[in-house]
Amino acid sequence: MGRTEVRDGTGGTGDAVIRLDGVCKVFDVYRRTGLLRRERREVRAVDGISFEVARGETVGYIGPNGAGKSTTIKMLTGILVPSGGSVRVAGIDPSRERTRLARRIGVVFGQRTTLWWDLPLRDSYDLVRRMYRVEPARFRANLDRCVDLLDLGPLLEVPVRQLSLGQRMRGDIAAALLHDPEVLYLDEPTIGLDVISKAKVRQFLAEVKAAGATTVLLTTHDLTDIEQLCERVMVIDHGRLVHDGDLAGLHAVGASERVLVVDFARELPAVDVPGARTVRVEGPRQWLSFPASASAAPLVAEVAARYPLVDLSVREPAIEEVIARLYGDRASL
């Protein structure tokens, strides 16, 4: 627990909308060991997490499957009661005042729509208005804005079952914002979407962010979402925060390698150059991996001197790789 360094995104604690302090969640898992016998095992899905998110921040929350992401989100929404530590969202303890908190947060489950399958999209929004008791004028203003930014106009009278996945996701995001939530949780909002829909969703979330009033916590497998929307990213693995900071910091922490891609004049066996490893050979093209901290220049000079060079380029490490390295190498942090 002490290993995780908490970054204070605001420079103070006064305006933190989300505040977690040493939060744990322990599950009992049963494994069948015989016909009737079961073995009980304790699993610490979330193991002492502390962080704060300031009002208006958009934070990426990432980690591999089973790392504790959704357990954290469930504690933040009041679905699950923490086993230890304290949680405050908009000043409310979610597990104790779940329904009161519900009016002040919005949740989008990427893989499950909460829209009414057989009814026109507009009907789902009308239910939100009445269920959350949104003041009519305000509802109209919010809906107009969402319809405008998410291109929902032509879809309002269409039964949800006839919408494409991307259209439905846009519909779901709008539904989560109509009651003016202070905090918006987005769980995989771009999963399974086509490129255009993804772009539209990101563009909309960028607008929400620019308005500056909604705090957004975003979990995703698509790191482009993070790159485009979040200046802060938290990485969770095995129930612990292993990174909380900006994207650049994530690169540094990941102790990554860069890759020199070389095109030779002809096919060659894997070249052998000091300070680099050849990781891939494909026809006349070869990939040479070298430490991100080292300069590429001496390496390029060396290769050019020894082999018939046609073209070359240097590739920066992808965030995916950095994170994969981070997960695999947690102990060294």
Binding site: R138, N142, H179, E182, A211, A213, T214
Partner: peptide, 10 residues
Amino acid sequence: RPFPPGEPVP
């Protein structure tokens, strides 16, 4: 929290 800005909170 204004979205759109400047209107009353629920």
